[in-house]
Write a protein that binds this DNA or RNA. Structure first.
Length: 258
DNA sequence: ATGACTCGCAACGCGAGA
């Protein structure tokens, strides 16, 4: 089963690129972020034509997440518990052939001296609680998404330039490690030890051409999923296309159960 | 170099992104 995560930065602006990529990459499951539309605006028919079912948790203009699957889609559940006042559409879970998957659009948190940073850290605490609950179920789990976390200095072109940023601050990294240390595996890092492989390149300053990127899109696997991990990678081709998202897909493959 | 890009919106510049 091939599972990918992709922050598309507007599904409407990205639809031709997304359809092309679905046809060529042939993922079984896509964990999508920043669709930037309400549920009714999601191009469901075009994607269903390629054999996918869609679960959508949208929001007007900002955020919004979706799960695409061509191998079934059951028990869909939106929102992250722990803050009933949180109206931002950033979390959606579903089950595909016994694998519990979540699409995650973790808050950016900048500026780090604003109220946005405590919101990010609070959101990470809520995610940790949910991640722990899922671990207790002792089943394959894949938590994929735009974490807005640069885990280590191997995951950024210029760590000094990012100093103090909400994506790299020690508190951010510690909160991310807390989730990993529950027992989750970073699928890409487990398969690709090479440093300086990125999933995001800013639109500005020729960052893509100069490979000035950051690795912030991650697939975290429970032990039962990690036991089935066959391969993982970053598909940088979509980032080089016309009208590209600033993020590119990160994927992993899980062996089918016995 | 007071820059640099892209998105949605009911806009005709702005906030947000990272």
């Amino acid at each position: 089963m091939k599972i990918a995560t992709w922050n598309v930065n507007s599904i409407k602006a990205r639809l031709p690129n997304v359809l092309d990529w679905l046809k060529t990459a042939e993922p079984d499951v896509v964990l999508m972020q920043e669709i930037k539309t309400v549920d009714e605006g999601f191009p469901r028919l075009e994607i269903e034509d390629l054999g996918y079912q869609c679960a959508v948790h949208g929001q007007k203009s900002y955020n919004g997440v979706a799960i695409l699957s061509r191998r079934g889609l059951e028990d869909v559940s939106a929102r992250l518990a722990g803050d009933d006042a949180d109206e931002q559409a950033r979390y959606l879970e579903a089950t595909v052939e016994g694998v519990r998957v979540a699409t995650i659009y973790l808050p950016n948190g900048n500026p780090a001296d604003s109220e946005k940073y405590p919101y990010k850290l609070g959101w990470m605490k809520r995610l940790k609680a949910r991640a722990a609950e899922l671990l207790a179920e002792e089943r394959p789990v894949v938590l994929g998404g735009d974490y807005n976390v640069i885990p280590t200095d191997d995951d950024v072109h210029d760590p000094v330039a990012w100093q103090g940023d909400a994506l790299i601050r020690p508190e951010t990294r510690a909160a991310f490690r807390e989730i990993l240390y529950l027992g989750y595996t970073d699928a890409f890092r487990a398969k690709v030890p090479t440093p300086h492989r990125y999933s995001f390149w800013d639109y500005q300053g020729g960052a893509w051409q100069k490979d000035h990127g950051i690795r912030i899109d991650h697939l975290l696997l429970s032990p039962q999923a990690a036991d089935r991990l066959q391969d993982a990678g970053i598909d940088s081709k979509p980032r080089g296309k016309e009208k590209a998202s600033d993020h590119t897909p990160v994927w992993c493959t899980l062996a089918d159960p016995e």
